[in-house]
Amino acid sequence: MGVPGERAVPSEGAEKPAAPYRPGYELVAEQLLTYIAEQNMKPGDRLPTEQGLAQILGATRNVTREAIKVLAAIGRLSVRRGAGIFVAASPGALNDDRLAHFQPTQMDHVMMLIDYRQLIESDTARKAAALATPLEVRAIARSARSSLDAALSDDVQAFALADEQFHDAVGTAAHNLFLRSSVGTIRRLMSQTDILLLHGDVPGSMEAAGKQHLAIAEAVSSGDAEEAAELMQAHIDTTRHQVERKIRDRLFSLTPPVPARVPRR
């Protein structure tokens, strides 16, 4: 038996599994993001034409067009009729140009983002437990309960909405506009990974996430700042393991990806 957590290496001569199916537009979208990073392009910089990008990336014009549409939909490109294709503004309030080079399909970038999320959201929960008003406590509890109810009903869209409301409510209760803005930026970046890499599929158990939301809400309600921070850290850590497993399963799966469902974090 191998060491737990390690992937077995095929013996010499063993047949290697076929590469998993990936739509052409997704591969070209990855190539285009890499091209933007390699050219050190900044928000507002103009890209070559659709035909020019197709030639640079070695893709057909139709597939390149679909890749551009996807990247525009997630906020990475801006297509202006009659003007051209541009690198979109960074999603963060501080507009750090380096965020324009975030690669939502690269495992190291995704894990760095989750590390950052864990730091930001655990401190946000700590401050929320110390500073939340009664109205804000009720908003956190209400959204946490809604997320669990949606999970138990297997309602992905309702869960996505309640999940967003929960994390936003915690950010509001922290009474720190920079923390709240950072939480929003992280969620927007994670949504790019949901769409491009996970095809919008839920990476793990909605019910488990809903129960964690409730536990965090209870810690905030009781004013236990350290407990709230630890529970939020554990919640994000669960997301980390779920995303890692989902990506690993996808990379070694031989079946085509399921069409996108509503992303959640």
Rank of each mutant, 00 (worst) to 15 (best):
E12T: 10
A14K: 08
E15T: 12
E15D: 04
P17L: 04
A18G: 10
A19E: 15
A19D: 15
P20D: 04
Y21C: 09
Y21E: 08
R22Q: 15
G24K: 09
L27S: 08
V28F: 07
L32R: 02
L32D: 02
T34R: 13
T34E: 13
I36T: 02
E38M: 08
Q39W: 00
K42H: 04
D45A: 09
L47R: 07
T49L: 03
A54D: 10
Q55K: 15
I56Q: 15
T60E: 15
R61W: 01
N62V: 14
E66Q: 12
K69N: 12
G75N: 02
L77W: 03
V79N: 08
V79Q: 07
V87Y: 00
V87F: 00
A88Y: 05
A89Y: 02
A89E: 14
A93N: 08
A93L: 11
R98V: 11
L99T: 09
A100S: 15
F102C: 09
Q103L: 15
P104R: 09
P104N: 07
T105S: 14
T105I: 08
Q106I: 06
M107N: 07
H109D: 14
V110K: 01
M112R: 15
I114P: 07
D115Q: 04
L119D: 08
I120N: 05
S122L: 05
S122K: 13
S122V: 01
S122I: 05
D123R: 14
D123I: 04
D123F: 09
A125K: 05
R126Q: 08
L131I: 00
A132L: 04
A132I: 01
P134K: 01
L135S: 14
V137S: 00
R138F: 00
A139E: 14
A141M: 09
S143M: 05
R145N: 11
R145C: 00
S146A: 15
S146P: 05
L148H: 09
L152H: 14
S153L: 14
D154T: 06
Q157K: 12
A158P: 04
A158R: 14
F159V: 06
E164C: 06
V170E: 03
G171C: 02
T172L: 07
H175M: 04
L177K: 12
F178T: 10
F178K: 06
V183R: 08
I186C: 02
I186S: 05
L189E: 13
L189V: 02
M190C: 03
S191E: 13
D194L: 01
I195Y: 07
L197Y: 01
H199K: 09
V202C: 07
P203I: 05
M206S: 11
A209T: 13
G210E: 10
Q212I: 00
Q212R: 14
A215F: 01
A215Q: 13
S221E: 09
S222P: 00
S222K: 13
G223T: 05
A225N: 04
A228D: 01
A229V: 03
L231K: 14
A234R: 12
H235E: 01
I236Y: 04
R240F: 07
R245D: 13
R248V: 06
L251P: 01
F252H: 12
F252W: 08
T255F: 06
A260E: 08
V262C: 03
V262E: 06
